[in-house]
């Protein structure tokens, strides 16, 4: 059993709040790993720690066995991490397609001189990137919106656009922070299919989600957080049967 990602004693405090407290867990390569927990449990904070947006107060994260301490987000992206955001982070000053193209940044010719002079090689790379970005938009179901400016897209479309952008870097590990939040049943079902198809590509998925039906249906393993601490971890069936989870979720029953 190989762990693509592992944390040990990972902790993040804000003032006195332990947003994430002493978490040690691993994510298997190729798995869909869900992270659930009530509001304020620390799920987003955990994602931010894994992707380098926040620096841990204590503990560490290893990716493919490599300690990621001190690495900024763009370096972690280079290690194959990619993510979406709970609160949309779409570049509204760009077209939908360009948003996805930005996602491919690390696989592009990033030479400044080539850009200034618009060298033929760069132009070819750009055309290729444009085509792949359009394919990805098609993959997430936005095939007919490629020409649109991002600020004209609906909320549901923007949620998918984030996924397309995250996929554009051809990541090893995709972290999704509440991809179905605010979506209706149909849209949620479509997201479920989409996540399955992503997993079929061999991409490991970390999924933060409140929709239990979705989580139970597609996760290989589930990590339950409460007040930043690990409440339970295991397969959907195990987690569902866990007394601690039941009492936390069903309240004082």
């Amino acid at each position: 059993m190989t762990h693509l990602l592992e944390t040990s004693n990972l902790t993040k405090t804000f003032g006195g709040v332990h947003a994430v407290a002493d978490l040690s867990f691993g994510v298997e390569a190729g798995a869909i790993q869900a992270i659930i927990g009530p509001n304020g449990a620390g799920k987003t904070t955990l994602i931010n720690l894994l992707t380098g947006i926040y620096t841990p107060s204590a503990g560490d994260v290893r990716i493919d066995g490599r300690d990621t301490r001190g690495l900024p987000p763009h370096r972690l992206a280079g290690l194959g991490l990619s993510r979406t955001f709970q609160n949309l982070q779409i570049c509204m000053n760009m077209s939908a397609l360009e948003n996805v193209m930005v996602g491919r940044h690390l696989r592009m010719n990033r030479s400044f001189t080539a850009a200034l002079l618009r060298l033929p090689a760069l132009r070819r790379g750009d055309a290729d990137c444009r085509r792949r970005a359009a394919e990805l938009m098609d993959f997430v179901g936005l095939g007919d919106l490629t020409e649109r400016d991002a600020d004209t897209l609906s909320y549901g479309a923007l949620k998918r656009l984030e996924i397309a952008r995250a996929l554009a870097s051809e990541p090893k590990l995709l972290l999704l922070d509440e991809p179905a939040a605010g979506l209706n049943a149909n849209e949620t079902a479509a997201i479920e299919t989409l996540i399955r198809r992503v997993a079929e590509l061999g991409i490991t998925v970390i999924l933060v989600e409140h929709d239990m039906k979705l989580v139970m249906a597609i996760s290989d393993r589930i990590l339950v957080l409460d007040h930043g601490k690990q409440l339970a971890i295991g397969t959907p069936a195990e987690v569902r049967a866990d007394p601690a989870v039941i009492s936390a979720y069903l309240g004082a029953a």
Partner: peptide, 8 residues
């Protein structure tokens, strides 16, 4: 931040 996680 979106730019950062895209590797920029």
């Amino acid at each position: 931040v979106a730019a950062q996680v895209a590797g920029v």
